[in-house]
């Protein structure tokens, strides 16, 4: 028990993530909210059986097909069936399914289509979906499918990738403002993303402040050190810049759990980027 407490103390971010993950991720449905003999209830129960099988397996797909047949208004079946299609590059089939889920329950499923648009760099469509989610449906908090960050950070990065960095900063700040009353919701990468957007917007002091805050929250990102290196290099502080570039290199090699998360697609620092600075 003492060992467990020590581990939790040392890995407090991991512990908090594990504790809150069930609340933050889109979880399973509750079939009891549907009338007992309704198509939705039967579809819901079939879908829960489907996810007992390996995702994308024949049995899983057949049960989802049956669920959609008996309960065509049960959105979760379309969403769950779409997941393995997207993961296997069957994007037309995946989007066809998620389109139907969005028609039925836009507030619950727009985020998922937007995530895949972002990952594949279809930024205009990503922005369209997330603008609708937050401005039309007034969504308060939705994480990425993997739970890495709130979707407004994805919206902020999509705007920045489309050349509208200022608008991206506004959305990122809009999210960060909500943490004043709910600090436990702050994401693992939020300060980093806002810092990068400030950097792209030629505001190096504000960028550095956010990136330094990121190191307090989660110092494992190679990317954070890389951008701090760039800012210090431009500030002619080459000694500190080199320290950060070396740190970025070490993190990219995995030092202390270091990495560069795939979720930054489009912003990821590469080995060549860092090598060019050393």
């Amino acid at each position: 028990m003492a060992r467990l407490i020590t581990w939790c103390y040392k890995n407090h971010w991991m512990t908090l993530t594990l504790l809150f993950a069930p609340l933050l991720l889109h979880g399973q449905v509750n079939c009891l909210i549907y009338d007992a003999a309704s198509g939705e209830r039967i579809a819901c129960e079939l879908s829960l059986r489907a996810i007992q099988y390996r995702q994308g397996s024949r049995n899983s797909q057949l049960l989802f097909d049956k669920a959609i047949e008996v309960g065509p208004k049960f959105a979760w079946a379309y969403y769950e069936k779409s997941v393995p299609f997207f993961k296997r590059g069957l994007l037309a089939e995946g989007v066809s399914l998620i389109n139907k889920a969005i028609d039925l329950e836009p507030k619950n499923y727009l985020y998922y289509r937007a995530y895949w648009y972002f990952y594949n760099r279809s930024y205009a469509h990503c922005i369209e979906d997330l603008e609708e989610l937050y401005t039309v449906h007034h969504e308060s908090f939705t994480n990425t499918p993997g739970g890495e960050m709130e979707m407004r950070m994805i919206l902020a990065m999509a705007y920045a990738q489309s050349g509208e960095v200022e608008k991206g900063i506004e959305w990122a700040q809009h999210l960060m403002d909500t943490y004043k009353e709910q600090p436990h919701l702050k994401g693992q990468y939020d300060h980093h993303i806002l810092g990068v957007l400030y950097y792209l917007n030629n505001r190096p002091l504000m960028a550095a402040a956010q990136l330094e805050k990121q190191l307090e929250v989660n110092a494992r990102l190679a990317d954070t050190h890389y951008y701090l290196g760039l800012i210090n290099r431009e500030n002619t502080n080459s000694t500190l810049a080199q320290l950060h570039f070396k740190k970025a290199w070490a993190k990219l090699q995995g030092e202390g759990g270091g990495h560069s998360p795939n979720i930054f697609e489009g912003f990821n620092v590469s080995a060549q980027d860092i090598e060019g600075m050393l």
């Binding site: 994308g56 397996s57 024949r58 797909q61 057949l62 097909d65 959609i68 379309y78 393995p84 299609f85 296997r88 069957l90 089939e93 066809s96 399914l97 389109n99 139907k100 028609d103």
Partner: peptide, 13 residues
Amino acid sequence: PKYKIPIVTHDLS
């Protein structure tokens, strides 16, 4: 229609 339900009778992989 924006959607067409894909029916696949084998493992998706």
